[in-house]
Design a protein around this nucleic acid. Structure first.
Lengths: 245, 245
DNA sequence: GACAAGCACTTGTCTATACAAGATGAATTT
DNA sequence: AAATTCATCTTGTATAGACAAGTGCTTGTC
């Protein structure tokens, strides 16, 4: 069985091979958001396996938030990227209509390689060190800055990131498509602080105004690999909303 | 089959019956945190069913965060209550050791039945109304107040809550044990605001200091039933941390 | 005593099958 | 033409087995 993989000494279970195959196709755009993926029986035939195995594969994708299953209809693509920890903006001072906000991302500084920021993530990381690919970005909604984001990715294994562009401008999408790195889990730490001069300048908010500070540690599917983020949000005009489950 | 349920017109699938049975036993303290629950084969015999069905039941409990499975060893109880949206306190000004903090909950006012708080959750709720069981509580860590919590539960169907005490002082645990209501999902909205006089007095923080404001809508396993919460956190001495997956 | 083999127990992966139940469109009846 | 039935697609639930692989205890050997 499994003509596709004959000869390859593949330690991965079948359901894992199938779910990664489908996930890759979703990432490649073969099945855009909202579209129907092949039915369980189709996948059974395609991979010459039993339905329970295919179901386990698809349930993995449900758990990771890639697809949604509908009884009697089929499995639909939920989102092209993993929604884990995704923050969406929701205007609350102007709850007028459902006119979505235009979201832009600006690089505050060009991407750089810097040593591990000592003391910043002290409560979440144990003994990180070495060089980190560092991104300083400003997220804007409707041309108004709402979030200042510092992202730290260990450079080891990602040297090629420096020379290449990000897929769709998204670091996480790039990691998933080009390196097979997916975010599995997220640990975060929330505080309310007063804006300092940097925050005030970049977020265009008064000095000392309350801003939301979030420290994040993303746990990936590669053991030992973590991505860190520090977010500063000015929430007077836009609040930060998210959905957990 | 299923001697236990013969005669009951039970619309629920077997795996659901099994997972709720085990969940109830965990809640009742039969299997404390860290202990071993019966093996898959034991449950197969107990419920006269196949292993795949038992596995589906246990996987439900894993998904909900109640148990953890270890290959070759067994299934262990992870936590006595659902961790969904649970906020844990993590001192960051005193990251000394792993000495856990003593957490207490004080009632600011006795529980009351009040009409739906107009305008408070306007961005998350559509057309809520009627009477709500309202709790105003202050959460303390090591005797220091860190979080002010307003909770709103529709009174319909929960009239008996007024006369009875909360199980272990926890509203969510009471809902789960006595009413079979479990939190499935959480929608939240985060902001940083300035402390007003109420916040300042209760949270013992300076007037105008930055505090974290969180609006929450809990989606339950009973369609149409939502629990709302509004949290105010003073994060100068304690930050708010949580884990998503 | 130290080590290795074997055994019993656990969860993990997988097969092949069956029927239930929701969705949908075509064929049939009214 | 409208309504109903039916066939056929989908996913959901369930059975009864099989072997693999991790864990830990017992037993036997050196």
């Amino acid at each position: 069985m499994n003509l596709l993989f004959l000869g390859m000494t593949n330690p991965k279970p079948h359901y894992s091979i199938i779910s990664e195959f489908v996930k890759k196709q979703i990432h490649e755009g073969l099945y855009p958001k909202g579209s129907l993926i092949p039915s369980e029986n189709d996948l059974c035939i395609q991979f010459d396996t039993s339905r329970m195995t295919v179901r386990q594969a698809l349930n993995e994708l449900v758990k990771e938030g890639f697809i949604e299953r509908k009884h009697g209809k089929g499995s639909f693509v939920k989102s092209e990227r993993q929604s884990l920890g995704l923050l969406s903006f929701k205007g609350f001072s102007e709850v007028v209509g459902s006119a979505d906000h235009e979201v832009k991302t600006l690089m505050v500084e060009p991407p750089a390689i810097l040593p591990w920021p000592q003391g910043v993530f002290e409560s979440m990381s144990r003994a990180e060190s070495g060089e980190y690919f560092t991104l300083k970005r400003l997220r804007c909604a409707d041309d108004a800055p709402v979030m200042l984001e510092y992202t730290y990715l260990p450079i080891e294994g990602f040297e090629s990131l420096l020379s290449s562009d990000l897929v769709d401008g998204s670091l996480f999408k790039t990691l998933s498509v080009k390196f097979g790195v997916d975010m599995r889990n997220l640990e975060q730490c929330l505080r309310a602080i007063q804006a300092d001069t940097t925050h005030s300048k970049l977020l265009k908010c008064p000095l000392g105004s309350p801003i939301l500070a979030i420290e994040r540690k993303y746990i990936t599917n590669q053991t030992g690999l973590f991505v860190y983020s520090k977010l500063y949000c000015y929430t007077d005009h836009y609040s930060i909303s998210n959905i957990l489950n």
